[in-house]
Design a binder for these strands. Structure first.
Length: 438
RNA sequence: CGGGGCGUGGCGCAGCCUGGUAGCGCGCCUGUUUUGGGUACAGGAGGCCCCCGGUUCGAGUCCGGGCGCCCCGACCA
């Protein structure tokens, strides 16, 4: 993308409403604009990040057998009456009426829709287990939206639902999903620790939240240093292997972690003092096992091998995709701006032409740009070098390819790594090779 | 939902107490200048002062009501 043609506004000054780093940076870098309290428009760069995250989530969910669908945002109240949650959910649910006066709602979650969908299509035990998920906008009328997209009212969420024939199978699905989540967060470049959690209005008995550690997090967390030390790559747990899932389950049992609401002082005392870790965390995922709560309430059953009806056991698994944009920034930024992990960055590199109009610089930039017009943000504006440097740091692309008259006439470009600040001057070909552009 | 605060060009703010020509910085446009970390100078555009009502000769300013937004707390991907 050529920056001169992009819809990419950056702000020099910080809008007064933004209090925390990620919110300030998202506004300054032109990722989002607020349209009303807790509701945002995503601008091109922000949308790219949102999609990158969603794609990683999608790949990993497919990897563990997830089937992607797209359920609606608007749901009927009747469906929620069948589960008994229409009255239970409270004012957080946005309730609306259509022109016939029918009661509708903007979905805060999708257990009802998915359970109904499943029940109306799946009739035999042979079709289980199933994992159905979608990535869709949700609305929860929060009492107090804040922190930008971290606690918006409208938010983008991946929610998956598992259906199993037995408790044991459902627990396997639960830990398989946990494994998938651990991998997702690793790929997103954040450290998220699963912590014992309350089940809230979704109900159920087994539940973990995934928390990204950050000082601005809303929950207080307590965990065993073991979580910092686990080497998931070399453990290579296979989600399709029951023994590996058991291993994970044991690790979770043996390695303490909890948010303040589930904090267990007795168990905490058992953790050696020098291994106790605490802090604040941002909840970016939440998984639940809640058994037959919805399948029973909504009368969903399949036939077993012996012909007897079985209420499938369910779990639900959420990842706050839009919240993750904020959480990642919260965990990865400096005074100059955002520092994107490679896989979520809106562009893999910024290409800075320090002197547009200079024949050598222009020619070199054009040849670099043509390698990957989609993945490079080419700053071809007639701005001063300082402006370009500052904007590039603010936007936080993993790399900056700096082309100035000094080096260009010798066929050299400068490469700056945003995360380390490291700069090196390289011949053009070497630089391209290093970034995988050639 | 309880407590606090704020609404004035795109952004950050002053002006309000003590009513009388709507201001500053940044950004934007034009020109010159500068050319490796937000350059300098000159000229210029841009404002239902959140809305409604009241007081007054006169309201951004005072009074009443409403709306919006933010912050702190209790609640949640």
């Amino acid at each position: 993308m050529r920056l001169s043609q992009a819809f990419q506004p950056t702000l020099k000054e910080v809008p007064a409403e933004a209090q925390i780093a990620s919110h300030r940076l998202m506004l300054r870098a032109g990722l989002v604009r607020q349209t009303s309290s807790g509701i945002y428009t995503w601008l091109p760069a922000g949308l790219r990040v949102l999609r990158n995250i969603a794609n990683i989530v999608r790949q990993e969910q497919d990897q563990v057998g997830g089937q992607e669908v797209l359920m609606p945002t608007i749901q009927s109240a009747d469906l929620w009456r069948r589960s008994g949650r229409y009255d239970a959910y409270g004012p957080e649910m946005l309730r609306i009426q259509d022109r016939q006066g029918r009661e509708m709602l903007y979905g805060p979650t999708n257990e009802e829709v998915v359970t109904d969908l499943f029940g109306s299509t799946v009739k035999s035990y042979r079709e289980l287990p199933k994992v159905i998920y979608h990535i869709q906008w949700k609305f929860r009328d929060e009492v107090r939206p804040r922190f930008g997209v971290m606690r918006g009212r409208e938010f983008y969420m991946k929610d998956a639902y598992s259906f199993d024939l037995s408790y044991e199978a459902a627990v396997s699905s639960y830990y398989r999903m946990m494994l998938s989540y651990l991998k997702i967060f690793r790929r997103l470049g954040v450290k998220a620790v699963p912590m014992a959690a309350d089940t809230g209005p979704i109900g159920g008995e087994l539940s973990h939240e995934f928390l990204v550690l950050a000082p601005t997090g809303e929950s207080e967390v307590f965990y065993d240093a073991g979580w910092d030390e686990m080497d998931w790559e070399s453990m290579a747990l296979n989600p399709q292997n029951e023994a590996d899932l058991q291993k994970l389950q044991n690790l979770v049992k043996e390695t303490y972690s909890a948010t303040d609401e589930k904090h267990d002082l007795t168990a905490w005392e058992a953790v050696p003092e020098d291994r106790r870790r605490g802090g604040r965390g941002i909840e970016v995922g939440h998984i639940f096992y809640f058994g037959t709560k919805y399948t029973e309430a909504m009368g969903v059953e399949v036939n077993g091998a012996d012909g007897a009806a079985i209420h499938p056991h369910m779990g639900s698994y959420g990842i706050g995709v839009s919240r993750l944009v904020g959480a990642i920034i919260e965990a990865s930024h400096d005074d100059a701006g955002i520092i994107w992990p490679e896989d979520v960055a809106p562009y893999r590199a910024a290409l800075l032409n320090l002197r547009p109009g200079d024949e050598t610089c222009d020619a070199m930039c054009e040849s670099i740009y043509s390698c990957d017009p989609e993945g490079l943000l080419y700053d071809d504006r007639s701005e001063r070098a300082g402006v370009k440097f500052n904007d590039a740091d603010l936007l936080g692309h993993p790399w900056q390819i700096i082309v100035g008259p000094r080096g260009a006439k010798n066929g050299m470009v400068e490469l700056k790594h945003r995360a380390t600040g490291e700069r090196s001057e390289l011949p053009l070909d070497e630089a391209l090779a290093k970034l995988g552009l050639r």
